[in-house]
Design a protein around this nucleic acid. Sequence first.
DNA 1: CGCCTCTTTGAGCTCAATCAAGGTGTGTGG
DNA 2: CCACACACCTTGATTGAGCTCAAAGAGGCG
Lengths: 236, 236
Amino acid sequence: MPINNQSPLEMFLPEILEYPIFKGLARETVVGFLQEGRYKSTQHRQALYQVGEQAESFALVIRGAYKLVRPSPAGDDVIVYFSCPGDIIGALVMPQPHPIYPVTVVSMGPSGVWCIPRRAYVNLWSKNPEIVLRLQNLLFNRMSLLQDEKLRVKSPNAQKVAHLLVQLMEKYSGECSDEGVLPIPITRKEIADAIGSTPESVIRIMSDWSHQGIIRTTEQHIEIIKTSSIISYLRD
Amino acid sequence: MPINNQSPLEMFLPEILEYPIFKGLARETVVGFLQEGRYKSTQHRQALYQVGEQAESFALVIRGAYKLVRPSPAGDDVIVYFSCPGDIIGALVMPQPHPIYPVTVVSMGPSGVWCIPRRAYVNLWSKNPEIVLRLQNLLFNRMSLLQDEKLRVKSPNAQKVAHLLVQLMEKYSGECSDEGVLPIPITRKEIADAIGSTPESVIRIMSDWSHQGIIRTTEQHIEIIKTSSIISYLRD
DNA sequence: CGCCTCTTTGAGCTCAATCAAGGTGTGTGG
DNA sequence: CCACACACCTTGATTGAGCTCAAAGAGGCG
């Protein structure tokens, strides 16, 4: 949390203006959208929102990453989406009269969001066709990802893990260059929760890859050494 | 296709005004949104849109049903969504500069849509905050369904079929009363494509249910006799 | 130091995919 | 009108990927 005299918003503004959701908009417009909010930092595994809770605010991810989790009917957690800087969380439910969060949002490693009260959405955001369309576009992308996953339900687990890793790499590096480190701490269990498998199965797959020199894992970070080998798992 | 003097739009307007997307809006407003379009009827298994095609129009489903299909990397088809009267198909990609359809849309039984050119979206729809928010809401519902499915990846197939049937019943009857006939012709293969299974497995599950008197199947229609029994499959 | 979460490996079992084969109904062309 | 193709439905037998269970080692933290 900044303690210097510079306003927190000013601090983050340069990067915020580059996020797809705001890119190309006038600086004053963006400041208008954000000025009612405040920066909130979260620790590893701390929950930002809880599923079922009254939704009083939504958030723009600025630092680190968050996982969006829902409990399955069987009781275990399912990871629905990984949110990275530039992502908007919870904006979709804001238009509803008494919105509740549809997912639990949990910090992965130390992270931070710009937390915006619901009234800003109702009074400002929803009145601006441009920003609403951009939100719709973000939502569309997320839906595409969910669909992509559905296409792979019948694929073997190795393919699902490969797909997830490539997807995460792309989300961060923009381009999918060979060699790269996933900048978020992600556990085998989280990978399992994301692809609908078990930690044991994920471990068996990834230790295979380690032995083949395709990936390297240090502590909680995953380094991809041969992206092309991973990608080769994706084609049927 | 109507050949009488009454305009086709007039014919459908009473029901169209009741759809959630338009409900409560002024008649003239709705007419404005729709007047550039035309009614298009499709036969069983006829494709309305093809994945990858240039998207020149979007559609409001009025009669029958459509399945939204994507080819999986393994080559077989995956049903991503079932569209019923009142649903909007393809509106999400309209804002993009050169939109292409993300899915193939195929008619299930004789069906019909109101087909609206893209320019109507760009010039009218996207300028109206109310309608854009309602579209966003539709999209949000669809995303919720996809997420619900993801919660069940690890569940046994019987649960997935049960979930799908209940979901389709709710979509049609609004309320999920005991006893009801699914008004769309749906094959075992389509159910399999929707839940990520095989026709054989679906048949084994459903013939079990038939023997137990939980469902009845006549030709291509499925009648649910004991909804409660089906629902009991959903809890873990 | 004990607690917790994460990781790892092994063994056994189960669900459902796959393969195979036969039956039915519908549309199509000779 | 018949024959053929095609899509769908059905049943049985086989098999394998991956889940479950069990047990143990390794960091991180109060």
